[in-house]
């Protein structure tokens, strides 16, 4: 009996033996999976990253066997959007281990890719929203309306971030303005200052999960300061 088709994106592929590739997949229900795909004579090349597809996978454990696929609609990313997409993929590969299903991550990734295709200039906002989705998926998200002690943020006060705790009152003249944090909580990325704040805040929140190593793809973003490099 044929195995069911598994919706998945290819995040990365690398050569394996003479005629095979190891695929890093992001699947809808199973999180990240590794799979070997044999591309011998007459077999089609696996789809490029960023194109949705459905895969027939066999086996268990760390490395499945991928034996067929169908590409879905959607063009590969090109130009500057391609580098933003590679940044997303590097985030996923660095933050999430194989075989650990994460609810909502597949959908958040698909939405980010669609946004990059439609509006490449919105790149910083797309990346920040996806970083926040990663924080939620990792259980590292924190309140942007209350401080770590459960008190509502006050627009006139300043706050700093403490990993594992959330926002805490900052010393006078330091930290981020409460008013800007509250704007961010409303999804407001409309000014460069808010985008800069979001980048610094999410970078601080993701830093423990990234183990202190910068993301290589950050330097290729349209705003080189726009990623966790």
């Amino acid at each position: 009996m044929a195995s069911p088709w598994t919706p998945a994106y290819v995040l990365h592929q690398r050569p394996f033996r003479d005629q095979s590739v190891v695929l890093e997949l992001l699947t809808q229900d199973g999180g990240r999976l590794g799979a070997v795909y044999h591309r011998g004579r007459g077999r089609k090349a696996p789809p490029l990253a960023f194109v949705p597809g459905e895969w027939q996978l066999a086996g268990r454990g760390d490395l499945r066997t991928a034996y067929d696929f169908q590409s879905g609609p959607g063009q590969p990313l090109t130009g500057q959007a391609l580098f933003a997409g590679l940044y997303l993929n590097e985030l996923l590969l660095r933050l999430f281990p194989r075989e650990a299903p994460v609810e909502g991550l597949f959908e958040a990734y698909g939405e980010a890719l669609d946004a990059l295709r439609l509006a490449p200039l919105a790149e910083p906002v797309v990346l920040r929203r996806f970083e926040w989705a990663c924080l939620e998926a990792l259980g590292l998200a924190f309140s942007l309306t209350e401080d770590g002690g459960g008190q509502a943020l006050r627009p006139g006060d300043a706050y700093r971030f403490e990993p594992g705790v959330g926002l805490l009152a900052a010393a006078p003249g330091q930290g981020w303005a409460g008013a800007e944090l509250l704007a961010l909580a409303e999804g407001d990325f409309s000014t460069p200052a808010l985008r800069h704040l979001a980048r610094a805040l999410f970078a601080a929140a993701l830093a423990p999960a990234l183990g202190g190593r910068p993301l290589q793809g950050a330097r290729f973003l349209s705003d080189p300061d726009g990623g966790l490099g």
């Binding site: 490029l48 960023f50 590969p76 090109t78 130009g79 500057q80 391609l82 580098f83 590679l86 290729f220």
Partner: peptide, 11 residues
Amino acid sequence: ATVEGEATAHY
């Protein structure tokens, strides 16, 4: 005509 080839071309 791969992701890496496209990235190299754009760069």
